[in-house]
Amino acid sequence: MSEQNFDEMRRMMVASQLRTTGVNNPRVLAAMGAVPRERFVPADRAELAYADTLIPLGNGRQLNTPMSFGRLLSEAGPQPVDRALLIGAATGYAAAVLDRLVASVVAVEEDPALAALAGQALAGTGVKLVEGPLERGYERGGPYDLILIDGAVEFVPDAIVEQLDGNGRLAAALIDGGVARLSVGRKAGGGFGMVSLSDAASAVLPGFAKPRVFSF
């Protein structure tokens, strides 16, 4: 498939998948319209780069849908001065988009194969790629103005919330009753809470299973 084909597919993604589903932040739309998503997809699945679907990456991991990622990012309101943490870098696509929108990006990935792909794809950008458990975030780089968990999780660990700045924002898809709900939250006055926006298919991330409560 030619570069021209991919360029047209990218324009169609912005027009039909993003603008029509509540992704209304002009800076987010511009960034997603500029980053060549096909470079962050396995070569044998390149034709799916701009499809409204989860793309298998191996080892149970998937690349999030453009809509799910774009809506979370749009609602999080990235600012040019933000220090951002991305959890679930996968092949690096989300980090590449975020890098166009904020002052600095730390991206965490725990799968060695995906981290290697992301490292290659992000070469030459300002993204700091860290290999380690997703559920731990990256405390050394904090505090962060914005934390984006690019996928679905059962809960957000306190250890990650604590890495937010005093007025920081966090976006993630929260799994409730088997359904992923795009959600955003803000830290304020020592507290933190999240509000659900809408249901959306999202890539499930490992390491975020909610602790089970046993009763007798």
Rank of each mutant, 00 (worst) to 15 (best):
P42T: 07
Q62T: 11
R212D: 00
D82S: 11
F208S: 01
A188K: 14
K187L: 08
L182R: 08
V130D: 02
L73C: 04
A103F: 15
A172Y: 10
A171S: 10
T53Y: 00
Y138I: 06
I175V: 15
E47I: 10
A95M: 07
L63C: 04
V23Q: 01
R37G: 04
R37C: 04
T20P: 10
G193C: 01
I147V: 15
G119P: 13
G141C: 10
L57V: 12
T21C: 08
G92R: 03
V156A: 00
P143A: 02
G77D: 12
V106C: 10
R39M: 08
Y93D: 02
N5E: 12
Q4L: 15
A51Q: 03
M32K: 02
N64P: 12
I55W: 07
L29R: 09
Y93F: 14
D99Q: 07
E38N: 09
A89H: 05
V23I: 14
L85E: 00
A115W: 04
A43V: 13
G77K: 15
F208G: 06
P26Q: 08
P143W: 00
R100F: 03
V195N: 12
A173D: 03
N25R: 04
R140N: 09
A118I: 10
D111L: 12
S74Q: 08
A115N: 02
A121D: 00
E47Q: 13
Y144E: 01
N167L: 11
A84V: 05
G191E: 07
F40V: 03
A203K: 07
D176Q: 14
V204F: 09
I149C: 04
P42K: 04
E38P: 11
G132M: 02
R212M: 03
N5G: 12
R71F: 14
A15F: 09
S202L: 08
L205A: 02
N24A: 14
I87V: 15
V161L: 14
A51S: 12
S74E: 03
E162Q: 15
V28M: 03
G207M: 06
L164M: 06
P112A: 00
R11L: 09
E8K: 12
V106D: 12
E154D: 14
G191H: 05
L122V: 06
L164H: 11
G33I: 12
A113E: 13
Q163M: 04
A95V: 06
R39L: 11
